[in-house]
């Protein structure tokens, strides 16, 4: 591993994270610290000193990050760097994995995400998620979208439900393609349509934050372009965190980009800065394709 040095000088607004970890490898002591702008003023999601363990193995080391309102934050990094694990902390999806432990302070609108008093069900309704592989339920297109509103009791009458379904599908850019076959199974759509259906399903419960875990990795370029367009439109109303393997995608859709490396958050900066003038040598090595 490259030696990391503390070098925050020369930045426009050096915001120093409080998280400093002493990591001893052999006799050499290295200081790891996030470079760039991990924090922002109007934070929707606030994470401080997050550590995640799978059993004994630590997957995330002392990550601190803010995600602002109506902002798209992209998380990039080589496979296994913990970006998906980190994303799944934000709506506590890691709870479903046996032996997974999350430490640190995470808050949504300054309300804690973890804690004995927190009910995970309304939290997940506020923080929606779109997964890597399109995972429509084996139900009709209509029922897929109506699922969330039904279980949360958002719509009681059929007409209200119809309206929510239509709005969500319209917002996801799928309405014109499926309006004549709402009763057909969602699994019968193409991959790109399925992923947009999943986005519509997530929108239907009116979340405040949408987490996207490599939403385009199973899609062809045209479907990908369609989803990226959609993300840009959704930013008006939602806060979005997206994990992606495609640096072009990160560059196209996000305002800020976070670079993860082996469970550490190495650099966070405005997307343009990250891709044109990376501050950290690891980030530079990754985006110029020297590893990853």
């Amino acid at each position: 591993m490259n030696t990391m040095t503390l070098d925050a000088a020369g930045q426009a607004e050096p915001v120093q994270p409080k998280a400093v970890e002493q990591d001893t490898v052999g006799t050499q002591t290295k200081v790891r610290e996030t470079v760039g702008k991990p924090f922002c003023d109007s934070a929707k999601l606030r994470m401080r000193n997050v550590n995640v363990f799978y059993g004994e193995a630590q997957a995330i080391h002392d990550v601190s990050l803010d995600i602002g309102r109506n902002e798209v934050v992209a998380m990039i990094g080589p496979s296994g760097c913990g970006k998906s694990t980190f994303l799944r902390c934000l709506n506590r999806m890691n709870d479903t994995i046996e032996g997974c432990r999350v430490e640190g302070e995470l808050s949504l609108d300054d309300e804690p995400i973890y804690g004995a008093k927190v009910d995970v069900v309304p939290l997940r309704a506020r923080v929606g998620m779109v997964f890597q592989k399109p995972n429509p339920f084996p139900k009709s297109i209509y029922d897929n979208v109506a699922y969330g509103p039904k279980i949360h009791g958002i719509a009681s009458r059929r007409a209200e439900l119809d309206e929510i379904v239509e709005n969500s599908l319209r917002r996801a850019g799928l309405w014109n393609e499926v309006k004549d076959r709402l009763d057909k199974p969602g699994t019968g759509l193409s991959g790109g349509q399925q992923q947009r259906l999943c986005i519509a399903r997530a929108i239907a419960v009116s979340p405040e934050v949408i987490l996207m875990d490599e939403p385009c990795s199973a899609l062809d370029p045209i479907a990908t372009a369609r989803i990226e367009e959609l993300i840009d439109e959704l930013r008006e109303n939602y806060t979005i965190a997206i994990v992606t393997h495609s640096m072009q995608q990160a560059a196209r859709v996000s305002q800020r980009t976070a670079y993860f490396h082996l469970g550490h958050l190495v650099e966070v900066n405005d997307t343009e800065t990250v891709f044109t003038n990376p501050q950290h040598e690891l980030t530079e090595a990754y985006i110029t394709g020297r590893f990853g």
Binding site: N91, T96, V121, P122, M129, K133, G148, I151
Partner: peptide
């Protein structure tokens, strides 16, 4: 039944 379906449902806030 694929875990992705459970994740999808839980991610929407199902109990």
């Amino acid at each position: 039944v694929p875990q992705s379906l459970r994740d999808g449902a839980l991610g929407l806030g199902s109990t």
